[in-house]
Design a binder for these strands. Structure first.
Lengths: 240, 240
DNA sequence: CACCTTATGTCAACGCCATTGACCTTGTCC
DNA sequence: GGACAAGGTCAATGGCGTTGACATAAGGTG
């Protein structure tokens, strides 16, 4: 009756210790996160299960619990990795509007590139290294631009919320089951394309335009509005 | 070997026919949706399972499949019901800015009131009656305001996307497991409240303000920005 | 009235899921 | 060499959505 295994996050000592192989692969936190991200990209976020991830790694599913408390913990790590990937190579220009726009679009692009992974954006606080770096940088851009602290925090919050909100939406619209994507268009065509003008005159009048607009993201224009409003407030606040 | 049951959506003829009771309750699409919404409100969207819903109705879980193809179909119906509830009692004022603001805030309030149900906002096209009414109304407000069709559709799309995006975000932030809500705050405190100023000077400088801002929604101010930008474009487009 | 059809309920089973306790293996330190 | 612990496997548990087979009762038709 040995004491039950701890099954908690891998410790410092653990990392220094060697790890025996499995029938093939050598596990590590980085490899697991990487593989999870690949699985999500190739299939969908819903398709990421402990069992499948284990299989993809050539390991027993239960082995993952040596590295992550549970699947939620694992997803947090994957989300943080995604943040990190979006920011690699970025350099501040010193012009806050340019910087914020670039950062917003980068995050958005990251989620569009891995639309299947955008569902992870719903994990708002990962509490991990890449997220901390992101927060620090955005706050630095805003405070460096001359916004007073209270204003900078409000804007930080608005900026991040905007990005996360659209990411979350994209997650729903672009990602989930991959066959539901087609189904959504089909539902649209089935339901709305032929609505009679008597009952739904406005829909009938612009049905074609509506259909063309479907699936596009409103993030970029909304981000511009956000930046414009921020600049207006900066001018009022006396920065210049 | 009778032919396999159809298990498809309840037909017209079906609705006209009577339905035998169960040990207590009499099922109906409306009752099921209603009960599902109650369950979601009382617990969480994740807690809504076919089995639990069946139990709450006093029926066998499999009975639900006489009314809905699958859980996705059921959730679509619940989402549409939520739309309907948000719109009941609303009357247009004739002033498009007022109308849009009111509609946006109503939808947002609906999701905040049933934060657990906001996850359903991720179902973007329900293809049901309430959604059709909502689209028709919003388009009517915009076209009535004098926006040309193409512009009206773009604005419709931006308006709806904005609402859905923040609803989806709220779903993640406010809703999901009810114990994760507290966990998120804890992660924040644990990770960010004590970051040293040497490595993260900006976070350290405004940690208190950040903490106070947590959990607030940026929807309302963003909606105002949206309305302002729309008005500016209307003036340019020649409406007045 | 009996009878057939059909809507709508139950029951039992399938295969998938996350998670965990018990065990085994193997490298490292004393 | 022996103890320890990290990190792997295996088997089991309980929950999930879904479905096929069956049961039952209302209505329409003769």
């Amino acid at each position: 009756m040995t004491t039950p295994p701890d099954r908690s996050v891998v410790t410092e000592a653990a990392r220094r210790r060697r790890r025996p192989t499995k029938q093939g692969t050598v596990l590590s936190e980085a490899l697991i996160v990487e593989t999870a991200l690949r699985l999500i990209r190739q299939h969908s976020a819903a398709a990421l299960t402990v069992r499948r991830l284990g299989a993809a790694l050539g390991a027993d599913p239960s082995a993952l619990y040596r590295y992550f408390r549970n699947t939620d913990d694992l997803l947090l790590a994957v989300a943080d990795e995604l943040i990190g990937q979006a920011w690699t190579g970025w350099q501040p220009t010193g012009e806050w509007r340019t910087d914020l726009r670039e950062l917003g679009l980068r995050m958005h692009a990251a989620y569009q590139q891995h639309p299947q992974a955008a569902a992870l954006a719903t994990y708002r606080v990962t509490g991990r290294a890449n997220e901390a770096r992101a927060i620090e940088t955005i706050l630095g851009v805003l405070r460096g631009a001359g916004f007073p602290d209270a204003e900078a925090v409000r804007l930080y919050h608005g900026f991040v919320d905007l990005g996360l909100a659209f990411a979350a939406l994209d997650a729903a619209g672009l990602a989930l089951p991959a066959e539901a994507r087609a189904a959504e268009r089909e539902v649209w065509d089935h339901t709305y394309s032929g609505l009679p003008a008597e009952t739904h005159p406005n829909i009938a009048a612009v049905a074609g335009l509506l259909r063309a607009e479907m699936g596009r993201s409103a993030y970029a224009p909304t981000l511009e509005q956000f930046l414009g409003a921020a600049e207006a407030r900066l001018r009022v606040a006396g920065g210049c």
